[in-house]
């Protein structure tokens, strides 16, 4: 009724009856963009541990901070944090 009038005329384009809730698109883990910073953090962390270069460990920490700052979901990154700090 209301919708009928609104859809018929050009005055009010709103149609509350057709409103749909937002459904976030389902993302699989593989579709997510690669976390380069986290990857680099792990690489440098491993290098730092293996070669005992302080610089590597520091760079790992910095990249770790970057990946933390850029992360979008809060679940899987604590792992990386601990990895990078090794």
């Amino acid at each position: 009724m209301k919708e009928g009038t609104s859809s018929g005329g050009g005055s009010d384009p709103r149609q509350p009856s057709t409103a749909k809730q937002y459904a976030p698109p389902k993302l699989s883990a593989q579709d997510l963009p690669i976390d380069y910073a986290g990857f680099l953090a792990v690489v440098f962390g491993v290098l730092g541990v293996m070669l005992r270069y302080k610089v590597c460990s520091w760079i790992a920490i910095i990249f770790c901070a970057q990946s933390l700052v850029n992360m979008k979901n809060f679940e899987n990154d604590l792992k990386q944090l601990s990895m990078a700090f090794m």
């Binding site: 609104s6 057709t18 409103a19 749909k20 937002y22």
Partner: peptide
């Protein structure tokens, strides 16, 4: 930002 409920479109 999401909006819905308009003629001709779903959202």
């Amino acid at each position: 930002f999401y909006a819905s409920g308009r003629r001709y479109c779903q959202g």
